[in-house]
Each structure stands twice: as C-alpha cells, then as structure tokens.
Design a protein around this nucleic acid. Structure first.
Lengths: 193, 193
DNA sequence: CGACTCTTCGACCGGATCATTCTAAGAAAG
DNA sequence: CTTTCTTAGAATGATCCGGTCGAAGAGTCG
C-alpha cells in the first residue's frame, strides 16, 4: 500500500522510455512488464489500461520539459543567451519525443482528446515563458519591444513552425541552419542596436 | 522489365531505414509499402517474403560498412590514426545497427542461419582489414609486431568485446571511456617506443 | 485491333499477437 | 485464522500481419 505511488512512478519511467522509442502502437504491455520484471497483469493493478499509462507518460514528459525550460529562463545569463538556450532545450526535447508525435499525428485521434488539452495547456505555458524572457530582456535594456505579449506570440509561432519538419525528416544540417536562421532573424529584429 | 533491379534497390533502402529503426518484428510489410507509396502486394512481386527482404538489407548494410572501412584503411594517414578512425567508423555503424542486433539476438534464431554465415564472412573480412592495417604500420616502423596475424586476431577480439554493451546500454560516457581505454591500451602495447 | 507479358493492387485468409480479464494464491498485517 | 494487498498464469476475444489470389491497368508485338 505504501509503495503504490512509487510503483506507478517506476511504471511511468519505464514506459516513457519504450513509448518514446517505438511509439504508442508498437509498444506492447508485455514489453513494459518485462522491463519492470513483473507479470503483465500486475501492471493492471496500478493502471487501468495502456491508454491510461500513455496519458500519464505524456503528462510526465511535459512536466520534465517544463522544469527544464523553467530552469533555463530563471538563469542569470544575459537574455539573449537565455533565449538561445531555451530554443535549444526545447528542440532537443521535441526531437527526443518525435515518436510520441508520430503516434499522436497518426490515425486514432478519436481516443486521444486528452492530448489536445495537454497541448493547449502546454502552449499557454510556453507562451508565458517566452513572454517572461522577453519582458526581462526588455526591462534590462537588451531587447527593444513595446508589446512583449504580441512579440511572445510571434516568437512562439515561429518556434512551432520548426516542429513540423521533425515528423518528416530527421534532424539534419539543413535543420540546424534553419534553426539558427530563425533565431538570428528574431534577434536582429529584437535586439537594441 | 528494365527497372526491376532499380525497384529492388529502392525497396532495400526504404526497408533498411525502417528495420534499423524498429527491428525485424516491429517492422510491418504495410509500413515498407507505405514508405514506397505502393500497395503491399506489389512488394511481393519483387521479393518473396519479409525474411528475404531482411536478408537483402543485412547484405546491403554489410556492403556499406565494408566500403566505409575499406576507404579508411586505404587512406594515407599514419597507421595510428587510421586504426583510430577504423574503430570509430566501426562503432558508429554498429550503434546505428543495434536494432538489427536486437532482432538477431532475440528468440527466433532458427530461421536466421543466413545471419550466422554473414557474420562469419564479415568476421574474416574484418580480421583481414585489421591485419592489413597492422602490417602496413609495422612495415613503416610505426608498430612493433612480429606476428601481425596473431595481433590482428587479438585486436579484433578486443573490438568485438565492445559490441555487447551496445545491446544492453545505450551509448554513454562510460562507453566512450572504455573505447578510448581499450584503444590506448592496444597502442601502448603496439607502438614502438 | 487482340493476344500476351509486365506490373500494380484491393480483398481476403488463417494464424499470431496483443490488451484486457479472471481466478487463485503468496505475503503481510491484525 | 481472516482480511487486505500484491502478483501472476491462463484464458479470451479482438485486432494485426504476413502472405495469396484474381483481376485489371499499361505497354508491346504481330
């Protein structure tokens, strides 16, 4: 009874690894059980279904990413390198999770409406993060913006534009260039001369 | 009629990517077909079975690795850096193919005796490669060996010892260290003082 | 035009796999 | 001994997947 939460956590961590590697469909409950050295039915004692585990995993990953990004924006570096590191962390994480994305973007959206909500929640959080970075940068005189809210929206949209290629191509030199280009363009429009 | 071989090649290249990502079992014929934008049954016009495709893919990958390694040992650098680059290329390739390995090391070895043969063939080739590098190095005075054949066997065995962790752990800092250690040890025992 | 070959594909089949349930039985606690 | 917590082997029903078959475009030759 005591360890129930602990066990749930272990399940999430193991599942997270397997899901991120193979995606939702290709991951089997047997594999998850094997990774935990437990019988398959034991897992059903802690989670009601595969879908519920997936849900929890998505939640967990979002949490991890959030805390990583949170750490970045709280650092005392200059705003410019904070923004750079923010983008870097974000893209690395998305690349790692591209298998989830493949799962999400495939046929069965019907059952996965919780992802829609997760996504929205995450979008709002991210916008707030960016707004905060921009606001701090403007305050300290590094950036030159009169409407940080609008600018945050723009930056956020630009970053989202970089996500899509992750489903199609694998990360390439092409992409590094594009990423660098977009961030530099953002800067030249943002940084005080 | 003309393009049949061309098509087989396309199938191999597409399959190679999917197999290396998901392993044998988790790769479906439908996926291969989808990647080629063809119907599943069309593929059976070019290859008799999934196993036959897998066989061809393994063959193709071995060919690629062989030519890469061949290019390395033919370079005119000093023997020491050739050997270093040889190990590097070899390990990178093996890492990329670790999913095949997982497939190979799983249950159904019964049907995959061709892999045994492939493996033997490749082992002999690799030993010859290493022997050649060691021989060239000895000849130019960089190495100090009186039996290059035996030394090649030793080096080859040592490198094979590095393969196993690839199935268990993912590449880590730990492994970099181990790789570096083994290659340095080999050198200090080999290089003329 | 037809006869003939080359190539593609949708529909289907039977066996395998998978998520999920059920039942029972070790532990642990009281 | 009874009760609660935890595990797992076996069973089940639904889905998936490798492989087959027959038909039908699409050229090609006479």
């Amino acid at each position: 009874m005591i360890d129930k939460d602990k066990y749930r956590e272990r399940i999430i961590k193991a599942s997270s690894e397997i899901f991120s590697r193979y995606g939702y469909n290709k991951t089997t409950m047997d594999e998850i059980a094997r990774a935990l050295r437990k019988g398959k039915s034991s897992i059903y004692y802690y989670y009601k279904s595969k879908e519920e585990i997936f849900e929890a995993v998505i939640d967990y990953e979002a949490q991890v990413l959030k805390s990583e990004l949170s750490a970045v924006i709280k650092s005392t570096d200059d705003p410019e390198s904070i923004l750079r590191r923010y983008v870097e962390v974000r893209m690395n994480s998305f690349e790692k999770l591209s298998n989830y994305y493949n799962a999400i973007f495939s046929s069965d959206l019907s059952h996965f409406d919780f992802i829609e909500k997760q996504r929205e929640k995450y979008d709002r959080m991210e916008e707030a993060f960016i707004r905060y970075v921009l606001w701090k940068g403007t305050r300290s005189g590094h950036f030159n913006l009169n409407d940080t809210g609008l600018a945050a929206l723009a930056v956020h949209t630009a970053l989202k534009g970089l996500e899509l290629p992750l489903f199609w191509e694998k990360r390439s030199y092409e992409m590094e260039i594009r990423l660098d280009a977009i961030i530099n363009i953002l800067f030249y429009g943002i940084v005080r001369k």
